[in-house]
Design a protein around this nucleic acid. Sequence first.
DNA 1: CATTCGGTAGACATCGGTTTCTACGCTAGA
DNA 2: TCTAGCGTAGAAACCGATGTCTACCGAATG
Lengths: 347, 347
Amino acid sequence: MNADRATVRDVAARAGVSPSTVSRVIKGDYPVAQSTRTRVLRAMRELDYVLNVHARALSGASTKMVAFVLDDVTGPSFAYVAKGVEQQATAEGRLCMVCATNGDPARELAVVEAMREQRADAVILVGGGALDDAYRERMSHFAHALDKAGSRLVLCGRPPLGDDVPTTVVEYDNEGGAYAMTSHLLSQGHRNIALIGADHPGQASTTKLDRVRGFVRAHESFGVPYDPDLIVPAGFGRADGHTAARRLITLGARFTAVFAATDMVAIGVLAALREAGLRVPEDVSLAGYDDIPFAADLSPGLTTVRIPTEELGRTAVRLALDRRQPQHVVLGTHIVVRGSVGPATPR
Amino acid sequence: MNADRATVRDVAARAGVSPSTVSRVIKGDYPVAQSTRTRVLRAMRELDYVLNVHARALSGASTKMVAFVLDDVTGPSFAYVAKGVEQQATAEGRLCMVCATNGDPARELAVVEAMREQRADAVILVGGGALDDAYRERMSHFAHALDKAGSRLVLCGRPPLGDDVPTTVVEYDNEGGAYAMTSHLLSQGHRNIALIGADHPGQASTTKLDRVRGFVRAHESFGVPYDPDLIVPAGFGRADGHTAARRLITLGARFTAVFAATDMVAIGVLAALREAGLRVPEDVSLAGYDDIPFAADLSPGLTTVRIPTEELGRTAVRLALDRRQPQHVVLGTHIVVRGSVGPATPR
DNA sequence: CATTCGGTAGACATCGGTTTCTACGCTAGA
DNA sequence: TCTAGCGTAGAAACCGATGTCTACCGAATG
């Protein structure tokens, strides 16, 4: 009785054939006599044979693995991208690795390196993404290295690294969503809209920049001036929204609507408004961005911008594994109207 | 110029040493002269050498991988378990694979099989878990097979398979949480408490059974009879809670509090109560289970049972990788009091 | 001066499938 | 009858890193 696993050789011995034949039965791409195949399959069952993917990978086969790198597994929208990735990976017969970076660029680079060691078929980076040059250069290097090894770097919901860098890019129309939502607010008569969650000066994020850009462009389209003081920098979390909104209220800023840069921020803003005795949407309208699952369960339901999270993940995997597809795609966004936005009321 | 990756041999050639020496530099557990080491490291850098984990795994080393199997990546509590797993895996120098089963036992078995092929250090199963014998037997088989191969099957938040099956079990006190919450409701004077989200007849789930058990035991402790008609079967989702609550209301059932089997159910119940013009907690008190992140953001905040999700994940990995630790642990649960439960008011 | 030992490095087998390349047995056509 | 051709199966090399076993060099010891 052996405590180790059965190998191809063991199976071969038991079935009275050569290892090559067993291998051919497993892969099934080479003619094997019916009787032989049956004997081999029986031997495999009897020995509880399990393939060793490492041995297979070593002798040239693909690893059938896709790697997925994100900031935080519990981020409400990231989880949906992860779901899309996992679904598509499964559909394409791939397994799925997940690594969280907690927003640390150094950790992200380390993780991508680990994926190179693993020889993953594709490495999918989601969200965020630092903008400094050293980082971009290192990432470009990885992209080239992965490409040379027949693998692929995928940027999902983040901007491209450059035209000469071999990557697959799946974005969504961040600016368009912000434009649409701002237009919606303007068309409801709002003329003093606070944008909470713009950039902290210094630490630029393209996601935020695009949302601010859409906000500004909508104002320009409507010929409505915007108050720069109402564009307030903040993080992307609930607490960020809460403190930013409270400060705005304390300062006595004049606004009839708040456009939060994310739904999490919106939830924080909502709490701050409530604490200040302001009703939504009667006194102040509130809009978010992301359409996280709970947006519908707030009271009132949050009017927000839906981003095609699952599709983002699925597309990333699909394109990375089939290079005949276009390798740069921008998915659409659209606003979801619920109860948190109403017509502007003078205050 | 070669499009393939550099191997140990390539590095060795460039550094003018043997492959063995390069390997020793990489592992660092064998004395190598300082000058040699320097030359090898330089050659590695110059060739952009990347280790091949498959080759390493093949020659006996651990795969440094942990697999994580769950129903659905987007499940609010699962995501936190995933976070805990990912954190601890990273802390222990492991990578993390994730597979979703969408609640399909067949798929779960297929996934575990895939993990055997991958030679993962540990395979962690979270949530749900079928109860029928065929399934349990197959899973026991996997547990033994993994064990024989030096790996480990971990049951996280699900019941053990049996004493003779080599598994690591990390549970939380499901029944205790239900007991505590029911006691809380009873102590607030509620005498007609509806439990929404008990079992559908036929498809038994231990999670649900335990929660019902705690509910019943609390009533017995308080010497309060409970109305079996108020224990209503339902799924674990928002929609399930919504329809179940609406039916209860339509039927004219008499209750002053609802204990929802999950927070998602509670959210559905909340919507149904609102639609019926019932205020929470003035007319009806509402309690949930799980303490998902948004429980605090509902209005009123949801009183619920907190389960130590992240710790569950971390513990699973920790115990699986260190067998000197106890291999069966039950983590505690406790209630979180927010605004959705008030004193009973006669109706 | 011979011998041994410590420090270091190379040769080679090994892990478990895959994949040529070769070869067998048999039938069909020249 | 001889051989070409097909279907099937085996032998052996290979993927890339590891580890064992051996061997070398210089220094220290008897």
